[in-house]
């Protein structure tokens, strides 16, 4: 709890303009992928970001790394505003902030050997000579549980789990402090998922890494995360310690989300909250609370006033009018 804040996002916003036509084009509206998101990530913790497809969780991760340019808001890494960096300063900062991708096939260049893939970050940042880089590649391979001779192979010669290990090794090559893990196990077989999750936890302990863990798999999140942020239509609707969130979800959306998780005991009574309708379009999000169109508890004020994220218990925040703030 007392760990210092590593990443601080305030009012983080990404609007994608929808344009159509030749040269200037008409503006057809704006996709509000991420719309004013605030959170802190503390050193050494794993903050999980959960939500349905299209709720903006991947965009949020990419915003932190400046892979997507924020429309507004600030991102502070150890107090320094990453959103304001440019050129060489940004390039240097990238050493500390890395990413692991979902797709173990698409995230490795098929025309490079694993050795070249792992050496590339060192080449880009001018670290070491050829021998030093070869040594570092060997180190990285053993760090993620691959063999030395794998360096000469191409990505297509590996299984999905092995490729994900290569992806993790590449992200670690520059000894970053913070990793965005964008659904790192969703594309893997269940048996392999556990291996990769365990590897990531070991690495986190050994290298004192901080993770932003983006996922829609709540079982995995419960296992790996220290805290969980729930996103809906570009906003964070609830944020709490993992145990607290799973035990006492306060936001109706979180409650619905958690009720969808299958339980291993078929006799245990389950109260499934089935949401009606689809997620509204992020081009024209509903006025007031964005969830009111599907919320089973919505009241008059929910349609008009947008709720803000407020503390509802120590270390637990929710954005819902119906949840009383702690005084």
């Amino acid at each position: 709890m007392t760990d210092p804040v590593l990443i601080e996002a305030r009012g983080l916003t990404k609007h994608f303009p929808l344009r159509k036509g030749f040269i200037l084009g008409r503006n057809l509206g704006t996709v509000r992928a991420v719309d004013g998101v605030d959170f802190d990530i503390r050193t050494g913790e794993t903050l999980a970001l959960v939500g349905e497809s299209g709720c903006g969780k991947s965009t949020t991760g990419r915003l932190l790394l400046r892979l997507v340019e924020p429309t507004a808001g600030s991102i502070r890494y150890k107090g320094e505003d990453v959103a304001a960096l440019a050129g060489e300063a940004l390039r240097a900062r990238r050493r500390d902030l890395q990413i692991i991708f979902q797709d173990p096939v698409g995230s490795l260049n098929p025309r490079m050997t694993v050795g070249e893939i792992l050496a590339e970050p060192l080449v880009i940042h001018g670290i070491g000579d050829a021998a030093g880089r070869a040594r570092r590649v060997r180190e990285l391979l053993s760090l993620v549980g691959l063999a030395q001779h794998h360096a000469r192979r191409y990505p297509h010669e590996f299984s999905g789990g092995q490729r994900q290990r290569v992806g993790i090794a590449r992200a670690l090559a520059l000894q970053p402090a913070f990793l965005v893990c964008d659904e790192p196990v969703s594309a893997l077989d269940v048996s392999i998922q556990a291996q990769i999750i365990n590897l990531m936890q070991e690495l986190q302990r050994e290298l004192r890494l901080t993770y932003l863990f983006i996922s829609h798999n709540l079982a995995v999140v419960r296992h790996i995360a220290s805290r969980v942020a729930v996103m809906y239509l570009g906003r964070i609707v609830e944020l709490a310690e993992t145990d607290e969130l799973f035990a006492r979800p306060r936001h109706p959306y979180t409650q619905a989300l958690l009720s969808a998780v299958p339980t291993p005991d078929p006799d245990r009574p389950r109260r499934r909250i089935q949401l009606q309708g689809d997620v509204p379009s992020p081009i024209n999000p509903p006025a007031g609370c964005r969830f009111h169109t599907r919320c089973p508890l919505a009241e008059a004020q929910c349609r008009i006033v947008e709720p803000v994220l407020h503390a509802v218990a120590p270390g637990h925040a929710a954005a819902c009018h119906l949840v009383r703030p702690i005084s």
Binding site: R95, L97, F101, Q102, D103, G106, E120, A173, L174
Partner: peptide, 10 residues
């Protein structure tokens, strides 16, 4: 994603 990875690496 490998192009995105290269961008993330600087």
């Amino acid at each position: 994603e490998f192009v995105e990875a290269a961008r993330a690496l600087g």
